[in-house]
């Protein structure tokens, strides 16, 4: 195991986490994309990326635009019967998360971006970086706060995360859609209140705060949808 047992205390000493608490309305981090650094030597990528013409643009293709890696979301061919053909392309800037439409003359080309999605295991946080490991190669990557964004609220040791690499370094990290985490702090559980609506805030082992039903107590493990930050139920097994 790479992670130390006291990883939680390490994390909670990290100001970004201590200040967190907005568990609701969490954006899906993968969509955001951030800056990053590699854990080991930066990978020098000698690959020259292919150029893609507008008629090859399709959802999921990663291209370089104005110096930033972007993901193509949609590509609409716009052409008057007589007249210039255009492609109206919806893109997401993988560094800033911005989504917008850019119009190209049909036939224009863009360079492909060296962007790859990898499933990696979350290892630990050292107060500055979050560490991930590629399970096949054991290669480790470090992601900084920009790459991680709010996703760290859902990182659990040995859980699989989707790490987006740009030129070999983490650009963004998406947690699994569902994680099971322990409640570390909440008001005492109200017995006999199981049938009632009502909710209360509960702090989880990662620092995330989610709304939970009144009957839950500290030490219980719950299942959370990381895309919405919503409580899904008690974990099947704690």
């Amino acid at each position: 195991m790479f992670a130390s047992r006291c990883w939680f205390s390490k994390i909670s000493s990290f100001p970004a986490v201590a200040a967190s608490g907005n568990a609701c309305n969490l954006p899906k981090t993968r969509a955001l994309g951030y800056h990053c650094r590699h854990f080991s030597e930066p990978k020098v990528n000698g690959n020259t990326m292919a150029n893609y013409s507008t008629n090859e643009f399709k959802s999921g293709l990663k291209v370089m635009l104005d110096g930033d890696p972007c993901s193509i979301l949609d590509n609409e061919f716009v052409k008057p019967g007589k007249g210039q053909a255009f492609n109206r392309v919806r893109l997401r800037n993988l560094k800033t998360g911005r989504v917008w439409d850019r119009t190209f003359k049909s036939g224009e080309t863009l360079e492909g971006a060296d962007v790859m999605d990898r499933t990696m295991e979350y290892l630990y946080n050292d107060g500055e970086f979050w560490y991930f490991m590629e399970p096949d190669t054991f290669e480790q990557y470090q992601a900084d706060a920009k790459a991680v964004g709010d996703a760290h609220l859902w990182f659990k040791e040995q859980e699989k995360c989707e790490v987006t690499l740009y030129n070999g370094t983490p650009l963004s990290v998406a947690p699994p859609n569902f994680v099971e985490l322990e409640i570390t702090e909440t008001d005492p559980g109200l017995k006999g209140d199981t049938a009632q609506g009502g909710s209360k805030p509960a702090t989880l082992s990662t620092g995330a705060v989610v709304k939970v039903p009144l009957f839950l107590s500290e030490g219980e493990v719950i299942r959370v949808d990381t895309r919405t930050g919503e409580y899904q139920g008690r974990a099947s097994k704690s």
Binding site: L65, G83, Q84, R88, D101, R102, T103, K105
Partner: peptide
């Protein structure tokens, strides 16, 4: 109203763009 990047062309290209977009 539109992001057209470095798009360039003659009057007809711009008229076609305005018409279609």
């Amino acid at each position: 109203e539109l992001d057209v990047g470095g798009l360039s062309g003659d009057r007809d290209l711009w008229l076609d763009l305005l018409m279609s977009h």
